[in-house]
Nucleic acid binder design. Sequence first.
RNA 1: GGAGAGAUGGCCGAGAGGUCGAAGGCGCCUGACUCGAAAUCAGGUGUGGGCAUCGCUCACCGGGGGUUCGAAUCCCUCUCUCUCCGCCA
Length: 456
Amino acid sequence: MAAAAVAAAAVLALRRRRRPGRTSRPGARVARGGVMLDLKYVVEHFDEVAARLGTRGGNVDVQPLRDLADRRRALVTERDNLRRDQKAVSDGFRQPGVTPERREELRAKSKAMGERIAAAETGVGQVEARISDILMNTPNLPQPSTPVGTSADDNVVVRTVGEPRRLDFQAKEHWEIGEALGILDFEAARKVSGARFVLYRDAGARLERALASFMLDLHVSRGYREVLPPYVVLRDCMVGTGQLPKFFEEAYVATDDLFLIPTAEVPVTNIHREEMLDAARLPINYVAYSACFRREAGSHGKDVKGMTRVHQFQKVELVKFATPEASYEEHEKLVADAEEVLKRLDLPYRVVSLCSGDLGFSASKCYDIEVWLPGQAAYREISSCSNFEDFQARRASIRYRPAPGEKPRFVHTLNGSGVAIGRTIIALLENCQQADGSVVIPPALRPYMGGIEVIR
RNA sequence: GGAGAGAUGGCCGAGAGGUCGAAGGCGCCUGACUCGAAAUCAGGUGUGGGCAUCGCUCACCGGGGGUUCGAAUCCCUCUCUCUCCGCCA
C-alpha cells in the first residue's frame, strides 16, 4: 500500500509554464526524479491503478501514460548516451599534445553532438511535460477500505453519537435565529462584500472568537502544536496540497502567483515542503485557526440562504505528518480529536466514511463528521478528516529518513477540520434554540463567553 | 525604497572553466580496541533517472536563460536570506 499515490511531484512542467520573472521557490530542491517513481508505479500496476481510479467515477484517463512512459524511456536513454559520447569527445581536449588542428576537429564534432543532445533534450522535455500534466491532474487512489460508490448516497455511516434533539416547538433555521437576535447580519455583509458572506455582531462575533479559543485550547491540550499561518500562499503550496492545477476555478487569486487559502491545510502542510523530516519527530501534529476563502464555483443555488456555504469562513484545522506505518491509526485519532469538540459542546453528530465517488481529489480515505441540525432536520458536514497517504508528500516533496543510513521515504499527510466554526455556530443556534428565540450557550463554552449563558 | 554580502549534500563549510558529485568537519553506519561504554584508529555514508540484475551510465551545487567543445565555477535574470540606511503597522 505504500506506493499508493499516483500523481507526482512533477512541478517541473508546471514551473515551465510559469511566467518568467515570477517564479518563487525558496530553497528549492525538489526531488525531480520522484516524479518518475510515481509514473513507474502506475505503469507497473496499470490495471490495478486504473481499476481503483475507476471507482471514483468521472473520466480519469491514465491510458496514454503507458505509451508516454515508453517514449520517455527511449528518449532519455538516447539523450544520456549522446551526452556520454560528448563527454568522451571533450576529454580529447585534455590529452597531452593536442594540435590546433585536432582541437578544431574535436570542437566541430562536439558542437554537432551538442545540437543532437539539445534536440533529444527537447523531446524528453515535451514527453515529461505531458506525463506530468496527466499525473498532476490524476486524483489519489482510494484506500481499499474506502467504500465503493458513486455519490454521497453511497457513503457509509460509521457511528452516530448523541440523539437528534427533540424540540417541543417549531425549530427555526439558523439565519432566522441569528438575524432575530441581531448577531448575524447578512445585509451588511452583502453591502460590504456581495453575496455569500456573513457579518457577525455582538454576541455572534464573541461566539466566533470563543469557539476559536475553545477549539485551539482543546487540541493543544491533546498534543497539537498551535500555528497561525499566512492566509495567502505561493502557487507551489497550492500545487503541493492538490488544489492546483486542477481546481483553479475554486481559488481566489490574490496576484499572479499568490492565492488566498481555501483552508489552513494549505499553508500548514506546506510548512515542511521540500524538507527531510527527522523520523524521531513523527508524527507531527499542528492545529491552526484561519479564515478560509472559496469561490464556490458551480454551487449556484445550493445553500443560498444563511451561512452554510459562504465565500469566507473560519475554521480550526488539524494537520498531521506521519510515517506510512502509523498513518491509518493517526487518521482514526484525528477523527476522534475532531469529534471531541462536538462531544464537549453536546452536539449530536454522526461519522460517515466517504465512498470512492464522493472522495476529494487528494484524499485516499475520508471521514466526514456531520452534525445534526434541527432547523434543517438533517445531518450536515461540519468536519472532513482525510488521509492523503503520500499523495501530497510527493507533490510537495516532504520526506523523512526512517533510520540512519536508510533511503528517504515520503511521509503521509493527514488533516481534518477541528472543526468549521461557522457551521458550529449554525449547529449551536439550531440545537440550543429555545421557544422564545433565545439560545443557550453550552457550559463548556461559557468561560470563553465572558459570562454570557444565554444569547437573547 | 537605497547600498552591499550571500544561497553548495542530513547539517556546517571549501571550491573560482575540464582530472568536481564535489575537499574538510559534524552527524550516521561498519570494523578494531573494551567486560561494556566513552575516547581513539580504519573504512563507508547525497538525491533521483536510464540501462542492467558483479555493475554501467546520465542529471542535480537556490530557479530560469546564456557564453563555451566543456560551467558549481563566467554572463544575464528572478527569488530568497543576511547586514546597513530610509520609511512604516
